[in-house]
Structures are given as C-alpha cells and as structure tokens.
C-alpha cells in the first residue's frame, strides 16, 4: 500500500494534477517493463506497455489523477478566502474541516453552534456561505496567502483503521492510479495501454482527449465508487459494500456498459476465485462516459473500488478489495486482449 499512500499524499485538484503526473511518470520510468509514456496538451499520461504477446484488441485501462477540492475565488475585507468547489463535494462534509492551501493550513467554519437556535443547529451551511480562515488580518494579507485560482484540498492523512480498512483523502481516484501502476510494474501478458487522465471530476474531460489519441477497441475504467453500506442505510440503497470485492458497473448516469464485457468480468472473476459485486444502483458516472463516445465508439467496462464517504476528507476502502481488483485486472488483460478473434 506504499504506492497508494504516496499517491494520496499528493495534491491534485482537477486542472492541477502536476504533482501526481510527475510521480506517475517517475514510477513508469522505474518499471522494468518496456513502456512508452507521453503526456498530452491537457496533461493526460498515455503509456503503451509492450506485453509478452501481441494483443488483437487495443486494450486500454483508464484511471484519473485529479481529485475534488476547492478553488479560491477571492477574499473578504475581513481577510477570509472565498472559494468554490471543484467537483462534487457535499456541503455536509465541509464545515469544521481543515484544508491545505499553498503549503499552509486553513479552517472552514462559521459562527458557533451556541449562537444558533433549534433546527439551525443541525442545518448544513451551504457551500456559498462558507469561507476559508487563514488567520489573515485583512483582504490584502489573505490574497498574499492565496490568490484567485489557487486550489485547496482537505487536510487528511493516510491511516490504517482496524482490519484491512484504509482512510485517506483522494482515494478517488489515486486508488485507480495505484492499481494501474501495479499493472505497469512488470511486463504484462499482452500489450496494453494505460491512461492516467486529468479533469475527471469536472466532466470527464481528460478521458475524452486521451481516448481520441489511444483509439482503443476495449477500455476498462478503474475508479472508486460510493459504498453506502453505512449506519442507517437499508440494504437496497447501499450501492455496494466495502469488503465486498471489486464493483462492476452495468449502468450509471453517464454510461450503459458493454454487456459482453460485463459478463466476461464476472466469469473471469469466478475462474480466478475473486468475488466481485455489481454496482446495484444507477448513479454517478466516470471516465467510461467519455471514452465510450470517443471517435466511432469504444466498448467499455468499469471496475471500481468500493469506497465509503467518497469525496469527503475521510474516504474508507478495504485493502482486500484493492488486492482482489488488481488480481482481476491482471486476469482481464488476458481475456480482453484477444476477445472476439
């Protein structure tokens, strides 16, 4: 899990993926496999890896480097920073949190609970009413600390909870990046292409240009997805479970997935003794939505890590799910490389 820990420590809000990109390029360079890696105009990494055998399908695996965060829009006269969310951050997880901004700390809060009455005490503060406190005395001082366009992330470290659970920021989708880097760590059975994309959280934008360049026949998106197997949620609303194995999508808000690929994933998992789970709710979306519609169309599948408290400072996943997903991805390389020929 060292790789995941290092990746989660990096800050990479959409459009500012530089640190993550540098890390991944270095990791690819260090691999003994034969890899041709390049970056495109938006900042995507496209890495062609020569396998032991030639694939008849051009097979791509896609994970996004960016994460949700905040972007500074200005400062108040009192010296507090105004901000907007980058990507979908629910307002319930922002109040009372600390953020990192330009190497410093900031605090997001508001007036004390003691000064609120009745239901206001448990009312979420809407995002547009929140400010970042950097302890500046006035507007000028605040703008010296961060200027409009600078970005911030939650301040949250990588912690092992009990058992095999991991808590960290940005597991969405450094988890996918870590899985792809594991795949690149040795020569795969067949040729594959890895795409580490930018700007997923702001509309699957990096995947669009990456897919255009790669022109894959089959693409597997490796991401993380909401696990709602938490207190107070009935079984039919849980989407998927942490510890329940890799999550396979048949449909979400952006994509209707290739049915043959979907079935093959379950069959392959069975063969190698991995237990997958279907994403049991049509919700969310990922880079598959952009890849599927690239050029003349691409067959897509999505395999995700079940993740509790997604897009919060405290994402929780299971190490066993991570390892099972990696095993499945390795096996699928063989299945998909020559499928249909």
């Amino acid at each position: 899990m060292t790789r995941l820990k290092e990746l989660c420590a990096l800050e990479g809000v959409s459009g500012r993926e530089g640190a993550v990109r540098e890390y991944i390029l270095r990791a690819l360079e260090a691999s003994p496999a034969e890899i041709q890696a390049s970056t495109d105009a938006l900042g995507n990494i496209i890495a062609h890896i020569r396998g032991e055998k030639r694939a008849t399908n051009k097979l791509a695996f896609v994970a996004h480097m960016d994460e949700v965060g905040f972007i500074i829009t200005g400062a108040t006269d009192e010296g507090f920073l105004r901000f907007s969310a980058v990507g979908g951050i629910d307002s319930s997880v922002i109040f009372g949190r600390r953020v990192r901004i330009n190497g410093r700390y900031g605090v997001i809060g508001g007036r004390a609970t003691h000064q609120l009455k009745g239901d206001d005490k448990k009312k979420e503060v809407p995002l547009d009413k929140l400010l970042i406190d950097v302890a500046a005395q006035n507007k000028q001082e605040a703008l010296k600390i961060a200027k409009p366009g600078d970005v911030a992330v939650f301040d949250s470290d990588f912690v092992k909870l009990r058992g095999d659970r991991i808590k960290a920021r940005a597991i969405d989708d450094r988890g996918g990046c870590a899985l792809l880097l594991e795949m690149a760590a040795q020569t795969p059975e067949y040729d594959i292409t890895l795409a580490f994309t930018v700007q997923e959280e702001v509309g699957l934008r990096g995947a669009k240009t990456a897919a255009f360049q790669i022109e894959p026949d089959i693409a597997v998106v490796v991401d993380s997805t909401t696990a709602a197997d938490i207190a107070g949620v009935k079984a039919d609303k849980q989407v998927c479970k942490v510890g329940g194995g890799p999550v396979i999508s048949f449909m979400d808000k952006r994509t209707l997935y290739d049915i043959e690929l979907y079935d093959t994933i379950f069959e392959t998992a069975k063969k190698i003794g991995v237990t997958p789970q279907a994403k049991s709710m049509v919700a969310g979306g990922n880079d598959a939505g952009a890849v599927q519609l690239s050029r003349t169309g691409v067959r897509v599948a999505a395999i995700s890590l079940p993740c509790r408290y997604l897009h919060s400072p405290s994402c929780v996943i299971s190490e066993a799910d991570f390892n099972a997903t990696l095993k499945l991805l390795h096996a699928l390389t063989g299945e998909f490389a020559c499928m249909g020929t």
């Binding site: 629910d90 997880v93 912690v159 909401t226 709602a228 509790r308 408290y309 997604l310 919060s312």
Partner: peptide, 12 residues
C-alpha cells in the same frame, strides 16, 4: 481506535 463519522452520500 481511529474511526470516521458516517456521512450520508448525497443521493441518499
């Protein structure tokens, strides 16, 4: 023991 307070996903 470290822990996290559950937060409800927006769709729920």
């Amino acid at each position: 023991y470290p822990g996290v307070v559950c937060s409800m996903p927006p769709h729920l």
